[in-house]
């Protein structure tokens, strides 16, 4: 019986394992190896690769533009993360506090996630941030707040902030849903008991909700880190044709090195692109380890 089971396990696992190795393990190993070579283009024959050791990494760290892209990534991750997590948690708590039309509000907040990023970015760029007839400009003009009405949202000084606002707007719903699923699992009896004991809503949050959703918070931080590291589409949409100091991220830099930049034929080095990929992977792993270290698993959490 045991032998038969082992055979069936092999039968059913083999295709999955082959696919896993072909789709995940092989590209990871190939990327790692590529990062030590100068590779003319992403599918170049191995015979055309030139071994450069850690030179790709050295070069990356010496290039101002790549350092700028890392700084942008850090800002997106930290400031965007704080904003998105705070608002998402607030919405999740409100939605689970017994308000009417709970499902409706949940759907509305989540809605930006089902709209294409291209459509969303176009809305923000051409309408909301438009400094001639845009939403912000006309709104602040109407309320008489001239300083805000005169902000050129898409100028080099404000472009990063505008990008962050637009991106975060679309991400709140996703993380709210994850928080919400954690809060929903907390037994209602706890809240009922604390209400009877006279605990206010803020007190319930700090003593019941927050301690019991630490695992969910950890998940959210890691998910946010992964999506931040992959920040690409929004950056491209906010700076078409040529990259931009304020919106460039490591993924965009990787793309420029791997596929070339804009309309000019520039030198490509897929090895440098691979090195960017390796650095980003290290970033996510570090965040994962630090998050696990800082947010300890408790015996009781949801």
């Amino acid at each position: 019986m045991k032998k038969k089971n082992r055979f069936m396990i092999i039968v059913f696992l083999t295709p999955a394992l082959i696919m896993f190795f072909a789709i995940f393990i092989y590209p990871i190993i190939r990327t790692l190896i590529m990062s030590a070579y100068n590779v003319p283009h992403v599918t170049a024959d191995v015979s055309t690769w030139t071994f450069v050791g850690i030179d790709n990494f050295k070069k990356l760290l010496s290039v101002n533009l790549f350092r700028t892209s890392l700084w942008n990534l850090l800002r997106i991750w930290l400031f965007g993360g704080l904003g998105v997590m705070s608002i998402a948690l607030l919405f999740a708590v409100i939605i689970n506090s017994g308000i009417r039309f709970r499902s409706f509000f949940k759907a509305v907040i989540y809605m930006p996630n089902i709209v294409s990023a291209v459509a969303l970015a176009t809305m923000w760029l051409q309408y909301v941030f438009n400094n001639r007839f845009g939403l912000f400009t006309t709104f602040f003009q109407k309320v008489g707040w001239e300083t805000m009405a005169n902000i050129a949202w898409l100028s080099p000084e404000m472009k990063f902030t505008s990008l962050l606002i637009a991106y975060s707007f679309g991400m709140v719903g996703y993380h709210m849903l994850i928080f919400s699923s954690g809060i929903e699992r907390i037994p209602k009896e706890m809240y009922e008991a604390s209400t009877i004991d006279g605990a206010s809503k803020p007190r319930q949050f700090t003593t019941i909700t927050w301690p019991l959703i630490k695992g969910v918070l950890k998940t959210n931080i890691i998910m946010w880190s992964i999506s931040s590291v992959g920040f690409f589409v929004w950056s491209q949409l906010f700076s078409t044709v040529t990259a931009d100091q304020q919106t460039i991220t490591p993924m965009v830099y990787l793309y420029l090195q791997t596929f070339g930049a804009g309309n000019t034929i520039t030198e490509r080095n897929a090895g440098l692109g691979a090195a960017v990929g390796v650095l980003l992977t290290i970033f996510v792993v570090v965040v994962f380890i630090v998050t696990n270290f800082v947010i300890k698993n408790d015996d009781l959490e949801y």
Partner: peptide, 18 residues
């Protein structure tokens, strides 16, 4: 060529643009 080659240095183009 495109941009009279002003975009030939991928590491400088964004700074030049800004």
């Amino acid at each position: 060529s495109w941009a009279a080659n002003a975009e030939a240095n991928v590491d400088m183009t964004p700074l030049l643009k800004e």
